[in-house]
Amino acid sequence: MSAPRIVIATLAMSVATIAMGAGSHQGGHGHGVSGGKPGEASEATRTININMHDNYYEPESIDVKAGETVRLVVSNKGSLVHEFNIGTPDMHEARQAEMTMLVQHGVIQGGTLNRGMMEMGNGHSMKQDDPNSMLLEPGGSREVVWKFTGSGDIEFACNVPGHYQAGMYGDVNFN
């Protein structure tokens, strides 16, 4: 939407490998399970639209094949900030702790995402640059080309505090 958002999105892509390494380390517990990784646009076989509402996804599950690359178009149709994050339940749980901090620091306030506050000075940054996560304000829409690398217990989820617990997650079913 805005310039900073594009920058962040670009940044997100450029640090993909590092971040994913961290992600699978954090959540995968060495089982080789992760949400997948950013894919090549040219390999995308189809587009899946996912709408985020307050506080649920539509649809609440998607079917993919192991190794399939799809274009995910995610739109926030709600009035609150929401996240779209692909990972295991453990990864989501770890992410929820981070998100709680974002709320406590005022980065997320109901329907507003204060991106300026992500830079906190003192070398501390709360930039949200995981490739498997997008944070969207109401009305926001973004797409990501994603390669679902394996099978396993993969969910897409919103880790804004309370949202996952209220049921804002969906299953990735591998066929």
Binding site: H53, D54, N55, Y56, E60, A166, G167, M168
Partner: peptide, 12 residues
């Protein structure tokens, strides 16, 4: 207990 017309913003 009143069931809403639309879906609820949570699930159970």
């Amino acid at each position: 207990v009143i069931e809403p017309e639309g879906r609820e913003p949570f699930r159970y």
